[in-house]
Write a protein that binds this DNA or RNA. Sequence first.
DNA 1: TTGTAAGCGTTATCAT
DNA 2: ATGATAACGCTTACAA
Lengths: 345, 345
Amino acid sequence: MMAKQAETTIHDIAKYLNISASTVSRALNDNPLISEATRKKIKKVAGEMGYRPNTLAASFRTKRTYNIGVIVPLINRHFFSSVISGIEDIAYNQGYTVSISQSNDNFIKETKIAKTMFNNRVDGVIVSIGMETKSFEHLKLFPEKNIPLVFFDRVVDEIDAHKIVVDDFGGAYRVTKHLIEQGAKRIAHIGGPVNLKIYDHRRKGFLKAMQEAGLKTKKSLIIHNSLRKDDGVAAIRKLMEKNEKIDAIFCANDTTALSAIIYLKELGIKIPDDILVMGFSNEPFSEVTTPSISTVKQPGFLMGQKAAELLIHQITSNDTKVNYQTLVMPTELLIRESSRRNKTD
Amino acid sequence: MMAKQAETTIHDIAKYLNISASTVSRALNDNPLISEATRKKIKKVAGEMGYRPNTLAASFRTKRTYNIGVIVPLINRHFFSSVISGIEDIAYNQGYTVSISQSNDNFIKETKIAKTMFNNRVDGVIVSIGMETKSFEHLKLFPEKNIPLVFFDRVVDEIDAHKIVVDDFGGAYRVTKHLIEQGAKRIAHIGGPVNLKIYDHRRKGFLKAMQEAGLKTKKSLIIHNSLRKDDGVAAIRKLMEKNEKIDAIFCANDTTALSAIIYLKELGIKIPDDILVMGFSNEPFSEVTTPSISTVKQPGFLMGQKAAELLIHQITSNDTKVNYQTLVMPTELLIRESSRRNKTD
DNA sequence: TTGTAAGCGTTATCAT
DNA sequence: ATGATAACGCTTACAA
């Protein structure tokens, strides 16, 4: 390994100025006890000597790292990278750094990441759990050790903590209601894994709207899968092969909605004329497809900001008992071409 | 601040077993000097006592943090989040954590981030510089202090380091050649800030192809801006208002290409029939727009992996003199609808 | 307002 | 194969 250059320490500065290291430390930290004169002198010399504080040593001593750990399923995903961006935004402005790991929806990796973050003594953790995650001991570690933990999006009921979610139920409810208002009666739903609350809520919002409208929902019109590109195609194919006479599809994400649209187009089925399609999440592509995809907008960046704010507040608060809150972020229904009935039947 | 629970240390384990802390340390680190029996005993007790190694203390002592700093203009951007994802992938598998900051293309922030990362004693740094960045002292700090530094995409000529770039010149050259093959003669170019090499290279690739084909390029047909949504519209408007008779536009990114397409559509101009349009970067939306956007694919995830590999290799290598390499990643020309001439003129 | 000294948890050197 | 001890660079009582 390349030898790192020897670093200037506060002791070097102290020796040079014939003062004590504690004075140097205080001066550099703007401790008000230190006189203006010495402070200035010390800072000047520190600059000249190329002094760089060793945050590591300070963190070690104070047991505060000013480091926030973030665990997401996949960094390279519009929603998650938006949230991360929001987290970084707040964190940076509050003097925190952000360490990021992706679980790849793999339970083992998620567990290892949690352990590593703990060992690194992060001041707090922000998590959105993976698809496989059904036990939570690896995350309980944090509250047990008094390390603040905030969940977002894919949250965990079993752990008491601040949570930032979007109004999945309400969003799905409004989606479905809109489809019904457009005249749809036989609406299919392609949902995600129900062990994730978000997909469970979307399903429930869907069912609620259907029920309120007095519409029956055949079991066969509800399909749950992993919501990847291929899953969307597979689900749609399954629906079409059964020859179910559907007039609308509510997909639990935009990727699936797009897959559905492309597949149906190939079958010569017109969207939205023959079948209405809606998604969820508002991916960047949804606005520019043909037809553009009606969907539900989730404020990712804002959610990241809120998560970071709550986390940092909890980190810096003295309260021994925290009053945990679940922030339900409002969603926005974006009605675009894929769900707007042009002609009456 | 909430009091953190007192942690079990190797000394606690040592006391409990009536052995020395060094033995415990060695055992936990699988030092071969320790006998199998004691190692097992120690690990068992460590587990029972809920011991969690304090990475901070170890890093402090060994001056190795196993932490990699990543600086990008914007986390929430498909290309960058792909690269980050690739970096995390390799880093995780090699036992490194990844700290991420976004400069927001702001020079001041970029400078502060660099300083913070240094103070945190990251083992190495991976950087893609911001649009405003024209001086590099804040980055030279790393090589000066023997901290490995790897650039990607938006690299810096003035600093000797490993660099991962895409073949911007070649990509732009092939784009232009393709447009010419489709019959275009008066091709406009909407480029990015030329202080960024990538945009300079794309411009040069464009010019080279034009020149080779014996086509003249009017200065007024080349516009440089920041390549955001609005810039694209503004640039296109400028071109159209001048009533330049263009038959193709090569945009230095897909966002601008999309803006151009939307704006031209509104003017009643048909893409690709009247004007061919091409982008660069292959954003997720480009495949699904109407018309789909011809573009150049950059292997973001792979670039991140390569960057991390080179960085970690440099971190762990003993070589005092590194033979810096610039990895030029091949691009892939994606010919889609926006550049495929359907009818002959 | 400044100095002294202990200590954070680990690793590494030198003994044994 | 194991132990004793110093050291990493900083902060923080406590003392002056």
